[in-house]
Design a protein around this nucleic acid. Structure first.
Lengths: 218, 218, 218, 218
DNA sequence: TATGAATGAGCCTTCATTCAT
DNA sequence: TATGAATGAAGGCTCATTCAT
């Protein structure tokens, strides 16, 4: 009568199910992603039963497992979906920039606005995502690195262009940029005071400009 | 004192038990704190049963609850213990500084060295602590803010002294400093590559100096 | 709430799950009720782990919680199921009675026989049910009152009919009837001597008749 | 470090510790009894940690175990202490009665008044005491039977005296008397309405008189 | 493909009891 | 004799995951 199930972490999660090609499936896949985003933001990853996601996605609990190997993979997929969109958008927007500092400026503006306009997403990325096991951090690593490289490349390019101080360690610069935005947005998400992060963008850029640009006065 | 009923969340646990005065109790309290630090670092907060902490502390499971209201309070107490020590140390070290930038430098060096020398502590502060519910974040808030203010005050003082650019938003500067260190240390903790974060201190200070100091060239 | 995160008492358990409509579910619901009746009788409510009920019902421990919010609700539901059946039966049986005393007689006979024929049920109703917290007593109150009113109404009717002494306080009469049966059955259940309570029915009725009937001699 | 303790029911509880002779010990013994009475009434037997009793008695938890083998024995001892006092009082009071019905009347009046004046005691005897395991019921049996016999003897005597209907089964009569009082008092204790049970005494006696007395009219 | 009832391992927490002091 | 810190077994409950339908 029994299902002989166990709560062990699925070992077969090695094969992530990935984004379905069939458009009908893809729609449901995305519905689950969105539902999970909301649900994780609302309850927190660890306090969010899979059933909550299913309910928000209007599917049965079991359906989740047709699209994702396990709960962790759902979290990872939400992140991938969101971060990839962010990267793509930024890549697009920065194509027209004339120098690398401008690209960084666009990136900062876009990232902070995106999260500033979408508290649910911000909460997810800044807070819930961190509630992660090693597995999850591993699954997140690749797209996150893509985002890191994006920034780091802007810095390195800027240094070649002579816009950014070439004595700066580009990797540290990336951490400065990312870390600052991260901190600003996290504080905002966690704050009980209601304010608009977007109003902080200029202050952030002012200080980042000082930190990076060769001739700030210019 | 306390046992409360069945499995409901401890009701009277609202009053944290605090650090015992009796030195023998205090020793055990601290032993549990240290054990928890290790255990949380090793397994992650959510994947760390209280029994693991107890074993590491060489006490029975139930003993934990003589010193802490619940598992959350253990996490919070570990944080408080560690962050308070950090704040105290930094306050002491910065007393002798001649200007505020020096204080910031000391803070950055000390913080990065402390974590760089203690991967377990770093893992706890940078990673495990984030796996937090609202309750935990609330419990953490006060000492964390103390740390924030410490930094922010250094910046504000520096502005009065004319060492730090007074056009900078001091709060954003705090987030820049904290966010950068945070990111640098987090990346180090999570990295599989073995390297010494302390070697990054100068690069961090270089860029922070650029970001803050009025006359960087000087 | 969930294991709530930790073990906190279920929040949404405020709404009792009630008897399922789906016949397949209803069968399992009833199976659990019967298993619980047995298990509580055998071990006593407080010494009966939910797992014992599950085993007797041939379901997993967790399944219990698909049908009942918690252990208390299981106890309450067993009671409700049994007392309602008792009330329904008595209402049916007494429909044909010509006067109210007869109704009381039927009630006493039926109640004492029912329990006398079902030691497990008797043990549950007379002994285990009393091991109750305030919550449980509250959950039990409504159907119990229905049973009380049934008796009290018979008395009041009897007084109107002139069969029962109208100087009697009907409420006290109810307590006399109920209390007597209760005591007789409880003593029987707890007695190590083996005897048949049903043989005591006539003696009980003799004394109750004396207590209530206007013209006993008649 | 370890005490190698287990939660098993103490097997050595066979030797109840009994009432101490030494007056100083006796005072503490009684203090614990009174504290337990209160604590059990307040929290309910199963929800009353031994530590609550200790606190109310102004002794350490461990001290309880110098006077009682275990928590069950405390409950039993409270009962014994109280019921013995009740029996003694009633025996004394009834010595002067001229016939057995009068004795029953005294008993009913005294019992109902005692409990009616002491809600804590009533709650203990009527409610908490029932939350009992087999062990407890066993420990309670002997003094309880003494009380039963007291009543039953009054009835039997009354039958010999010709005051009480000799066709009545004296044992059933005892159950009627005890069961009725029990029910009346229990309902009162559990009722949220505030009323005085003592006002019900006459109604109870009226109906008991009807039930028992040969010539009620007289 | 989708469902959702069922599973059962696992964990936080309590508290009766012990015993070193 | 009294203390109360320490013990650790026990149990209610959750929820990720499975699979019969």
């Amino acid at each position: 009568m029994p299902y002989m199930k166990t709560n062990m972490k699925a070992e077969n999660s090695l094969e992530p199910k990935g984004i379905p090609d069939d458009p009908r499936k893809r729609a449901k896949y995305l519905a689950i992603i969105e539902a999970a985003l909301e649900a994780f933001s609302e309850y927190g990853y660890h306090d969010c039963p899979v059933s909550k996601i299913a309910r928000k996605a209007n599917v049965a609990d079991g359906t989740i497992y047709l699209y994702f190997a396990n709960k962790e993979e759902v979290l990872i997929s939400v992140f991938q979906e969101k971060i990839n969109r962010l990267i793509t958008d930024i890549e697009e927007l920065t194509e027209e920039c004339t120098n690398s500092w401008e690209k960084i400026e666009v990136l900062v503006r876009y990232h902070m606005s995106s999260l500033g306009n979408d508290r649910v997403l911000a909460n997810f990325l800044q807070i819930q995502l961190r509630q992660s096991s090693n597995n999850i951090r591993h699954g997140i690593a690749i797209p996150l690195k893509k985002f890191y490289f994006l920034i780091e490349n802007f810095v390195a390019e800027g240094q070649k262009e002579g816009v950014i101080d070439s004595l700066i360690n580009a990797n540290i610069a990336r951490k400065l940029i990312f870390g600052t935005i991260d901190e600003v947005v996290s504080c905002w998400v966690l704050s009980r005071r209601q304010y608009d992060v977007k109003e902080l963008i200029d202050d952030v850029l002012y200080i980042l400009r000082r930190a990076l640009i060769v001739d700030v006065a210019a």
